[in-house]
Simulated assay, not measured.
Amino acid sequence: MAIHRKFLKSNKKDRTFINRDIRAKEVRVIDPEGNQSGILQIHQALAMANDHGLDLVEVSPNARPPVCKIMDYGRYKYEQTKKKQEAKKKQSTVQVKEIKVRPKTGEHDLQTKIGHITKFIGNKDKVKVTVMFRGREITLSQQGRDVLSKIAESVNEIATVESYPKFEGRTMIMILAPK
């Protein structure tokens, strides 16, 4: 039983109250045409909605007094889901792809990695280029910086350096973003 109550409490925030579920004593009413009918007692607002054959929907519960609109609740719910879907479509997710190299990576391997970076940048993804140092290679930090600057130079027409090379433990990291 306690779990059920807890679930109801967490669901209360995103719940839209309609008709008799509205707890306020008086509400600001907007009629179906969009005109304000003023502040009415809840029973008067419910009677008004009933006369129109529609629902009384609380559209702004945080206002004092709460704002309620006389409308078809099913249609309102449908429009809200459509708005959420449209917002989700317009939202673009930027992924961060990672390319790992070593300070002594060969020229051909480096060109292959640059090809991958070009492809990722072409897909509008950010690229995190990591130079990994093993054992005594940590003394080759200048070679690591040279590798990163070579990569940055070769993709400078399609990408910008968002985060310049910096050490994080035994790795050196640089982040590239599409222009």
Rank of each mutant, 00 (worst) to 15 (best):
M1P: 02
M1R: 02
H4W: 02
R5M: 08
F7K: 12
L8A: 09
K9N: 10
N11F: 08
K13R: 13
D14Q: 10
D14C: 02
R15F: 14
R15G: 08
T16S: 13
F17P: 05
R20I: 10
R23Y: 02
K25S: 05
K25C: 01
E26Y: 05
V27D: 01
R28G: 03
D31F: 04
P32E: 06
P32M: 05
E33S: 14
E33H: 06
E33C: 07
E33D: 11
Q36S: 14
L40K: 13
L40T: 05
I42W: 02
H43W: 07
Q44V: 14
Q44N: 15
L46G: 07
A47Q: 13
M48L: 11
M48I: 07
A49R: 07
A49K: 08
N50H: 05
N50R: 13
G53L: 07
G53S: 06
L54Y: 00
L56S: 01
V57S: 04
V57C: 09
V57P: 01
E58G: 03
S60C: 00
N62I: 00
V67H: 00
V67F: 01
K69S: 04
D72F: 01
Y73N: 07
G74Y: 02
Y76P: 03
E79I: 09
Q80E: 12
Q80L: 11
T81S: 15
T81H: 11
K83N: 12
Q85A: 07
Q85K: 08
K89S: 08
K89M: 09
K90Q: 10
K90I: 00
K90S: 00
K90L: 10
Q91N: 09
Q91H: 06
Q91M: 10
Q91T: 07
S92A: 09
T93S: 10
T93Y: 07
V94S: 11
V94R: 15
V96C: 08
V96Y: 00
K97H: 00
E98W: 02
E98V: 06
I99L: 12
P103Y: 02
P103R: 07
T105K: 04
E107R: 11
D109H: 08
D109C: 00
L110D: 07
L110T: 14
Q111H: 04
Q111R: 15
T112G: 04
K113D: 13
G115C: 12
H116W: 12
H116Y: 15
K119Q: 14
F120E: 15
F120W: 13
I121Q: 08
G122F: 03
N123I: 04
K124T: 11
D125M: 04
K126G: 05
K126R: 15
V127Q: 04
T130R: 08
T130G: 02
V131K: 01
M132G: 01
R136S: 06
E137Q: 11
I138S: 03
T139S: 06
L140Y: 14
Q142T: 13
Q143E: 15
G144K: 07
G144L: 04
R145F: 02
R145H: 08
D146I: 06
L148H: 09
L148T: 11
L148F: 03
I151D: 03
E153I: 02
E153L: 10
S154L: 09
V155M: 01
A159E: 02
T160M: 04
T160K: 14
S163T: 13
S163M: 11
P165Q: 08
F167K: 11
E168F: 03
R170P: 02
T171Q: 08
M172Q: 13
M172N: 06
I173V: 14
M174L: 09
M174I: 06
A177N: 06
K179V: 07
K179W: 13
K179I: 04
